[in-house]
Amino acid sequence: MSSRLLVRRLGGSVLVVFLASILVALMVHLVPGDAASAVAGENASPEQIQSTRERLGLDEPIWVQYFSWATDALRGDFGQSLITNRPVIEMVRQVLPATLSITLAASVIAVVIGVTLGGLAGLRRGVTDRVTSLGASLGIAMPSFWVGMLLVTFFALEFDLFPVLDYTPLTEDPVGWLHHITLPALALGLGMSAEVARQTRGGVVDVMAQPYIRTARAKGAPGGRLFARHVVRNAAIPVVTVLGLQIGRLLGGVIIIEQVFAINGLGTMAVRAVADRDFPVIQAYVLLTTVIVVAINLLVDLSYGWINPRVRSEE
């Protein structure tokens, strides 16, 4: 991997995060009217509004506001919740494992199901292909919360196989952890797997039509494993791309899933913060998700070079 490539991409990512951080830090000013009174609430006295203004640092010049927010943020200090006064970083730390578990599990499910089904559809064509494509369309159309409710109805209530709510930390009880995240991760991952399946199928169909596949067959390569060798790396790029793009959908979808399964995660925290106009929490949440999305996309970018050697040498 060319290190110039790495440095360039990394630099680009850092720039994006920096620009986002400016927006985040100054987000309070996007509120129409006086931010301080909006945050303090309609019943606040002038003294309360002033103290809110001071808390939010709104009477400092803009660049000072950004600078102090940014330097604090780099140290992990995102201030305190305006509503509960708890340190924001503590709040995030408390809820992050649940959301990460579900999101990662959902990604794994999406990749496994999506790549498998999409690959089969692209290789076999015919009935498998039609059924898979139809299924994928349905999967993309179905809202995740609805899928979640269906899963709960069947697997939790009817068949009592899984719990309905809540999250158990991995460190406390690995079996319980798996038990609790299965349905939420499925609900979240099935929709994504549909998109992955579509892209995989498209990529595989493209590759199968290429002359080098014919060459491989002329060499006597059997359908299964060796085709996997030839097809996978060449079809991988659109699939990896869609995985990277889906991360945004995942982070949004997990909020809804957390509501449906009553899981105390990042999404729950964010929803509350928005409803309560709890700016420090909102800022931390937005920055965190920005960093995650940028990081994932950077990884995707870098992976292209690893997957397709042609890309490497073009740098």
């Binding site: 290429q210 002359p211 080098y212 014919r214 060459t215 002329a218 006597g220 030839h230 790396r233 050697p309």
Partner: peptide, 19 residues
């Protein structure tokens, strides 16, 4: 295929696996 009988094709660039 590839054993008793070998075969080569017209466009070598696209007939070889690029990766």
């Amino acid at each position: 295929r590839g054993g008793g009988i070998g075969m080569i094709f017209q466009d070598p660039m696209s007939s070889l696996n690029p990766t």
